[in-house]
């Protein structure tokens, strides 16, 4: 009985995995994609587009094999370094997850804090959700005044 069962399961597994599962394709399946939305009168046209990365020519070269991209630079990043911090957020100011940034755990947490600090100081007003009024001076009550942060208060130390 057990042998019969074994044969049956083996056959079943074979039938599942013998299906033609092609892992080879002639053209590359992985591309950087961009989704565009265009309003044409009443119609909303949404179409995907394969694009090449704008960052590629300006990418920093690192000699480290193991270090994460930010550790490899050896920079001490402050919350006012918006040109670096803006590379880790989406268009709406939302932090990119670790599987996309490829940073180490500590750096990912630190950058998350630094991005929040920069946003609270109103240093990245163009990277905000669509419903935001964009101008830090129009914020609610105490939030409209200039503030700065101390990076040593971040609980994640390098």
């Amino acid at each position: 009985m057990t042998t019969l069962f074994k044969i049956a399961t083996n056959n079943y597994i074979k039938s599942v995995f013998n299906q033609a599962q092609r892992n080879i394709s002639i053209t590359s399946t992985l591309h950087l994609k961009k989704i565009n939305e265009i309003q044409e009168g009443k119609d909303l046209v949404i179409y995907g587009e394969i694009v090449s990365s704008e960052r590629e020519p300006y990418l920093l070269k690192s000699n480290h094999s193991k270090a994460c991209p930010l550790c490899a630079t050896g920079l001490d990043i402050k919350h006012t370094d918006v040109l670096i911090l803006s590379q880790f957020v989406r268009k709406d100011g939302c932090m990119l997850p670790r599987r996309i940034t490829g940073l180490c755990k500590t750096q990912q947490k630190r950058v998350t804090y630094l991005v929040a600090m920069a946003q609270k100081s109103g240093l990245m007003p163009n990277l905000t959700p669509a419903y935001s009024n964009k101008d830090p001076k129009k914020r609610y009550e105490w939030k409209k005044y200039n503030k700065y942060f101390d990076e040593t208060t971040i609980p994640f130390k390098l």
Partner: peptide
């Protein structure tokens, strides 16, 4: 501190990039 929207667009685009998108 300088705000991100105060930098010229070209400077932001051509600033050295730490990461690329997957």
């Amino acid at each position: 501190p300088k705000r991100l929207d105060d930098y010229p667009e070209k400077d932001v685009k051509e600033f050295p990039k730490v990461i690329d998108y997957p």
